[in-house]
């Protein structure tokens, strides 16, 4: 089977810092690949190359086996790549619907924004993702951390993504909301999406992911199948920056 995504030999540096140093990862349809590593390991920078936010200094990205030209986030969206950024990337002064459709607004035949339809669509998807959500007409700055997160997730899920990038999607969530995100990931996986999941909680990784990529100081320590290793093996990789002997 051809992988959905292949990132080959990606390098990104900021000034003198090598944030990502010759890293290769791949992702298959219906697969969840966890990205792990300490803060500053380069996880966010790596996936931002795929989402079009950064352009790598070196390396190639292949989608469905073909070389992809991703110069900006619009290009990425055209490949059905959707991203939930660590910072959420919400415009705090706008309401949920405006954020959900930001950059892809629905318009009436006269070319004006179709606010009513956008709000209706937002209500529809939020009813699925976060049934308790009510604050449709308030700016998202008035929302709780969990509510904001659900808006960001809704935006990524709404547009029929094939490749989903989730950068610490549960960082601001309580246990119940975290559970809902876990169920969502399982459901999307069953629908055949490929998901990159950046997550610090090792138990969540073991439960949700098929494979895990560990990074340290911009380099890839190794890639393992989670059912072939233990929590401690992965923790060891994160801390020591070395692949355990038992892993494949």
């Amino acid at each position: 089977m051809t992988p959905l995504v292949e990132m080959r030999d990606i390098s990104v540096s900021f000034g003198g810092i090598k944030a990502v140093d010759h890293v290769s990862v791949d992702l298959y349809p219906g697969e969840v690949v966890g990205l792990l590593g300490h803060n500053g390991a380069g996880k966010s920078t790596l996936i931002k190359c795929l989402s079009g936010a950064y352009r790598p200094d070196a390396g190639e990205i292949h989608i469905d086996g073909k070389k992809a030209e991703i110069h900006n986030t619009r290009d990425a969206r055209a490949y059905n790549i959707e991203t939930i950024y660590q910072t959420l990337a919400l415009a705090d002064n706008l309401d949920a619907a405006s954020n959900l459709f930001l950059g892809r607004e629905l318009v009436t035949p006269t070319g004006l924004l179709d606010e009513a339809r956008m709000e209706a669509e937002t209500r529809r998807i939020m009813a699925r993702l976060n049934p308790n959500f009510r604050k449709f007409s308030e700016p998202v700055m008035a929302l709780s951390g969990g509510q904001r997160q659900s808006v960001a997730i809704a935006r990524a899920v709404y547009f029929n993504a094939r490749i989903l990038i989730m950068d610490e999607p549960t960082a601001a969530l309580g246990p119940q909301e975290t559970q809902m995100v876990a169920e969502l990931i399982d459901e999307l996986k069953r629908q055949g999406l490929g998901i990159f999941l950046i997550e610090h909680d090792i138990h969540a990784v073991m439960k949700l992911c098929d494979r895990a990529v560990v990074m340290k100081n911009g380099q890839r320590v190794g890639t393992v199948r989670v059912d072939e290793v233990t929590d401690d093996d992965i923790l060891g990789m994160i801390i020591m920056g070395r692949k355990p002997e038992t892993a494949v």
């Binding site: 986030t73 990337a89 919400l90 415009a91 705090d92 002064n93 706008l94 930001l102």
Partner: peptide
């Protein structure tokens, strides 16, 4: 308004 609220978010939204 989006750019004024969060320039990074606007940029990331294309």
């Amino acid at each position: 308004f989006a750019t004024g609220g969060n320039p990074d978010a606007a940029e990331l939204s294309g």
